[in-house]
Write a protein that binds this DNA or RNA. Structure first.
Lengths: 121, 121
DNA sequence: ATTAGTATTAGTAATCATTACTGTTTAAAT
DNA sequence: ATTTAAACAGTAATGATTACTAATACTAAT
């Protein structure tokens, strides 16, 4: 894939945060570096970066977010502050169990824990 | 909540399938019973039925789907046929572990297993 | 360094899912 | 039967994402 300044800026934005930003948030950030960057450019490059495995998509309800962390991991979503935090949960047992009991070959496990983080009560 | 024929038809459609239908699919079905039913009516009633706990929403990537099964359960999504099947997975250990290790009070656990079901190889 | 070829871009229009609005209909309480 | 508000059909508006197009800018070959 050919170099582009826009894509590089977008990549850096994703890699600079743990907040799992939306396309819109990336767009706002990107405009600070490249004021006339187009929203379409943001979407196109987010897709390309995802396709080539540089970043990944996470789904927060109907919201699409992006994440630089490609290691297998899960998420905790706080209902009070809305923040989504990474967490690593074991799932080997889950995979085995499903394979044995349902003959379903699991390639990926997505776990989202919804609740309240320690900043609230 | 006042009775409405439209809502009753929509409710029956959801309860008649295990396919976790989208709003659009429900709309298409509903038109067979009530040809001039409005898409807005479908959305409004799906929301009402969800709010009153008669049905529930499940998220399939960016797609919103509806489900009559309100028991706590998870989903297996087959990458070959796209079908989403219910499965009950234990998660008490998960909750305890997260509470102890991260001081995060889990109210809901959403697990989606992505892989291949036994109809494919 | 110049050129040529094509991926990428900005800007805009189009699409898709969902929600909001509005005047009319209808359930259901009096 | 009359009244009242919830629900409706039809349509417009919104928000997220994708598609289109003519201009621009990487990059490889000259």
């Amino acid at each position: 894939m050919r170099y582009s300044h826009q894509r590089e800026v977008i990549r850096e934005i994703i890699f600079s945060t743990n907040s799992h930003p939306s396309a819109d948030w990336v767009y706002a950030k990107a405009r600070k570096a490249i004021p006339n960057i187009s929203l379409g450019t943001v979407y196109r490059n987010l897709k390309q970066l995802t396709d080539q495995g540089t970043i990944r998509v996470i789904q927060d309800g109907p919201l699409t977010r992006y994440d630089w962390n490609k290691d297998p991991h899960d998420h905790m979503k706080c209902t009070s502050c809305g923040r989504m935090v990474d967490i690593e949960l074991p799932n080997d047992d889950l995979k085995k169990m499903v394979k044995n009991q349902h003959d379903f070959e699991v390639s990926d496990v997505e776990i989202t824990l919804i609740g309240k983080c320690n900043k609230h009560d």
